[in-house]
Amino acid sequence: MTYSLRRVYAIFQKDLKDVLKNMFITTSLPVPLVFALIASRDPNPPVEAHFMFINLVLVMITAFLQSAIIAEEKEKNTLRGLMLSPATTLEILNGKSLLTFVFTIVTIMVGAAISGYEPANLWLVAVAFLFSIFFYLALGTLIGLYTKSMMEASVLLMPILLVFGFGTMHRAFIEEYAFLSFTEYFPNIQLLELAENVQTGAGIADVWPALTIILAWSIVMFLLVIIVFKRREIDE
């Protein structure tokens, strides 16, 4: 099987030019940084305050941007052109994810600089971020593939924003309502707990279950994306 970096980069370049001219997307992107600014006003914010904006970045940039650019390709009938080109499924998905990935990393770094978040173990938290970004990229791709337009994708993203974007707040509900305890296994909660544990000195031996759970979410979501994308290649 061939893999062409030229094709991946071509899709990335095209998306970059296209997104920078899309007012709807460009005006939505800086919103999570507002929460980084809010966290920065506290001289010693808890990890949870930093993760307010980090989780918002993962939903509002990673999942939203990804779903918007995929849904718009469907809306304007351009995805079919990519699917009929020599680009393979993996090249298209990687090309379409690269821009979102870069925007996510840059926004997290800028937001962390603003809010003053400094992980006690940068590499461990970076790996957890990476796994989480893969999950949200796949989630955004799936939403994009299931919806017919950018507007429909943004509407569908609302409940996801509530569950994952502001999800850290519902830890309080878990204590009150036991039936919600399954949400502890959500990737956003696992990411937050991992970051909190790392901040109190935990190492890989302590946080590997959380890493494994986030990775498992990413793998399942990625497999779903491949299945749905392959189905979309056929116009039945």
Binding site: K21, N77, T78, R80
Partner: peptide
């Protein structure tokens, strides 16, 4: 008839 182009480019 359902081929599309990137309108902003």
């Amino acid at each position: 008839d359902n081929s599309g182009l990137y309108e902003r480019l």
